[in-house]
Design a protein around this nucleic acid. Structure first.
Length: 733
DNA sequence: AATGTGTTCTTTTTT
DNA sequence: AGAACACATT
């Protein structure tokens, strides 16, 4: 027996050694699928003599790809690992397109990837060009329609136009695509869609990749969408050596076009497939595995795969209920500290997970208040900073001169006297000359006695000045390494002194830019022109989870979605409240409710040793600043009492509902108020009341502020009013 | 052209 | 409550 098979259980071994034909591996959480995948790759290379470049492995995140590579390095030589294609669908597609796209004729190899914000801007531009009112046609909604269409491979002309709404949407979609192409830009969906189109329309290109990828492996199959599935099918065409790994119970991205039914489709499309079940969980204690099973067992859309573990019972799940969300956050942080102090569990072993990003704020504040280290996994935040976006816009324009969106971002940053007027003149003139705005600027500088331009002497001067800057930068990118090019760029554009203005914030901005520069150093001395595309692609496709590193010593704060594929010794899931988790937006639809349940399943199974489920009795939601009472999440009641410690199940102590202590500052001091300070609300949401002036109404929220109770009441025909209970003469009715 | 003011919208999850 | 954006003022 080869040592690649040592330490694997039977189904894992089967997964590793079944190399020919389609295989579907149902892998429960923590069942060692990454292990199976990596060993399989090593086995293919070492035992079966398959060349590394004949292997394609698709992961869900870049982090997973990196991890896979690292694990492979323990079994294979660096050279072998280098030639295996490992990546996410998006990054692999980007790479293929970079190489092949020019045959399509309407994109060039230097295309850039637009992020969500830029996609939004393009939608708005499309609306504006079509003279449609942004108020009436929500860019957000339009964008959703477009993205959904793309996920189902529907082109603008195929979009159903049964209603006026749909007709507009189809036209906006068409215009959107046109603008994207004009800018030589793609959105995330395009990366997949256009690759699909490329393979479909260029048989020789597809043949080449088919030939190359003799063995195709796809992880997280339950979260593939239609395009991704078809890409896999195309690539694996003849040989059908597809190894797919999935778990329907962990499908949590349907709202993004993913369809867990692809696992079932796989079974249908490849009737000869071998089915392997990885059911032994090596990650979590029996208690945690059991809890997870109780939660997921309520779902109807499943494939049976009975999970088990031999790790023993371990700690009970700790259920904690606090007075409000602030207290909940404080509890989490103090418990992290206690675990650290008393049980020797490093803070970096702990993760705090939540349903919505908005919940991170209170947690952050609590960590800061108690000066405990934390790591917020919302990676893009770095790239959302103005100075970073500006610099990236420069790089993108220099990489892809067609990118007029980025050009408009930097054309007057730092300020060089090119205002809105000049810009719109430029756009119109460029259009009339059939030039891109950037080309138009450059032309203005070259043809000195150009007559037919609309600019004032001053405007022309600043524009040509900007053109000269760009010219110099274009030359520099050929000759300098990426970091050196960065230095040249910030110096020549005056961006350095613009942003580093002596203020404290300026210093911070500059630090951020240096951080950006640091991320360039890994590209070595190769000239910027060679690596700029790859650099920008990396930036565009980073995922939140990619930030998390092995040696991280701070507690991770992340959404349940981001937590997918990760594991931690200790996990807190906060906000276990109906309406929040499961989210109210999923309440009406049983399909979506099942997905919430899967999300809970994913969250719970991230924990190795200890799991905390916390909730608050009241929490501020929405923008009103009003507290709303909340009910326990239905997922909590799915847990059998013997697995749980604390919460409502344990014999109730008188102080289960803790009252805020030392919170007089927040709710006003008792010194000043003449009336007794109220701490609890007397009205309930939904209660019917009558007001002398406004008539009948329904209480929709309540809050206490400075010892005074306020209610929001929806009055029939009068709208919503906020009333102070002690003043308004409200009668219960 | 830069700065200030007001209005409106937003919160589900993300490559 | 805060961001983003449109519009107005200096």
């Amino acid at each position: 027996m080869t040592n690649l098979l040592v330490g694997l259980n039977d189904p894992q071994r089967e997964a590793v050694t079944t190399i020919d034909g389609p295989v579907l591996t149902l892998a429960g959480p923590g069942s060692g699928k990454t292990r199976a995948l990596t060993h399989r790759i090593a086995y293919l290379i070492q035992e079966c003599g398959i060349a590394p470049w004949n292997i394609l492995a698709v992961t869900f995140t870049n982090k997973a790809a990196k991890e896979m590579r690292n694990r492979l390095l323990t079994m294979l030589s660096e050279n072998q690992v280098y030639y295996v294609s490992v990546g996410t669908f998006h990054s692999l597609c980007a790479r293929w397109l970079r190489r092949e796209i020019e045959v399509l004729g309407y994109y060039d190899t230097n295309f850039v990837i637009y992020d969500t914000n830029e996609q939004q801007t393009i939608v708005k531009k499309a609306l504006r060009e079509m003279d449609l009112d942004e108020k009436r046609w929500r860019p957000n909604a339009m964008h959703r329609v477009i993205s959904n269409a793309k996920n189902e491979m529907i082109t603008p002309d195929k979009l159903p136009v049964r209603t006026y709404q749909e007709e507009i949407a189809a036209r906006v979609y068409e215009q959107y695509q046109k603008l994207m192409q004009q800018n030589n830009a793609m959105d995330f969906d395009d990366l997949l869609l256009i690759t699909h189109l490329l393979f479909q329309s260029q048989p020789e290109v597809l043949a080449k990749y088919r030939e190359q990828y003799q063995y195709v492996m796809v992880d997280e199959f339950q979260d593939t969408n239609m395009v991704q599935y078809q890409l896999v099918q195309m690539l694996a065409g003849k040989h059908g050596n597809i190894f797919s790994v999935g778990d329907i119970d962990q499908g949590i991205y349907s709202w993004r076009g993913a369809d867990y039914r692809n696992v079932l489709n796989f079974q249908k499309d490849y009737p000869t497939h071998k089915l392997i079940r990885l059911s032994q969980n090596y990650r979590s204690t029996d208690t945690i595995v059991n809890a997870a099973k109780h939660i997921i067992s309520k779902n109807t859309q499943r494939i049976e795969n009975e999970l088990f573990t031999e790790r023993g019972l371990g700690h009970k799940i700790k259920q904690v209920e606090k007075y409000d969300a602030e207290e909940e956050a404080d509890y989490v942080v103090s418990e992290v500290r206690r675990l650290n102090d008393e049980e020797n569990i490093p803070a970096g072993d702990v993760a705090v997970m939540y349903r919505t990003n908005a919940q991170s704020r209170l947690l952050e504040e609590a960590f800061i208040r108690q000066s405990m280290p934390y790591l917020l996994l919302r990676g893009i935040k770095f790239y959302e900073r103005k100075e970073i976006k500006d610099l990236l816009a420069y790089l993108r324009v220099l990489h892809n001169p067609a990118d007029s969106l980025s050009l408009s971002r930097i054309i007057n940053v730092p300020a060089r006297g090119i205002g809105a007027k000049t810009i719109s003149k430029l756009d119109r003139w460029a259009f009339s000359q059939n030039l891109s705005p950037l080309k138009a600027i450059l032309r203005l500088g070259v043809e000195l006695n150009l007559q037919n331009h609309p600019f004032s002497t001053r405007s022309k001067r600043v524009l040509t000045g900007f053109g000269q800057l760009l010219d110099r930068l274009f030359v520099a990118k050929e000759n300098l390494s990426l970091p050196d090019f960065f230095d040249f760029l910030v110096a020549r554009s005056n961006y350095k002194e613009f942003t580093k203005d002596g203020s404290e914030e300026g210093e911070e901005r500059w630090e951020n830019l240096l951080e950006l520069r640091r991320s360039m150093t890994s590209f070595g001395p190769t000239s910027a022109v060679e690596v700029l595309g790859e650099f920008l692609e990396n930036v565009a496709l980073v995922a939140d989870a990619d930030m998390l590193t092995e040696e991280n010593s701070a507690t991770a704060l992340l959404t349940l979605h981001t937590a997918k594929g990760l594991e931690f010794p200790v996990v807190f899931i906060v906000g276990m409240e109906d309406g929040l988790f499961p989210h109210s937006r999923s309440a009406e639809d049983s399909e979506r409710m099942e997905e919430e349940r899967r999300l809970a399943y994913v969250g719970v199974t991230r924990a190795k040793d200890r799991l905390y489920l916390t909730r608050a009795f009241r929490r501020q939601r929405g923008y009103s600043g009003f507290y709303e009472p909340s009910e326990a999440s239905r997922f909590l009641s799915d847990l059998p009492p013997e697995l749980v410690d604390g919460g409502r199940r344990s014999p109730r102590k008188s102080s289960t509902i803790s009252r805020p202590k030392n919170k007089s500052t927040r709710w006003g001091s008792t010194k000043k108020s003449a009336t007794p300070t109220k701490t609890t609300v007397s009205y309930k949401i939904g209660e019917k009341v009558t007001h002398a002036k406004f008539g009948k109404g329904t209480v929709i929220s309540t809050k206490i502020d400075r010892g005074e109770e306020y209610v929001q009441v929806a009055f029939e025909g009068q709208g919503i009013k906020t009333l102070a209970v002690s003043f308004a003469k409200l009668e219960r009715s």
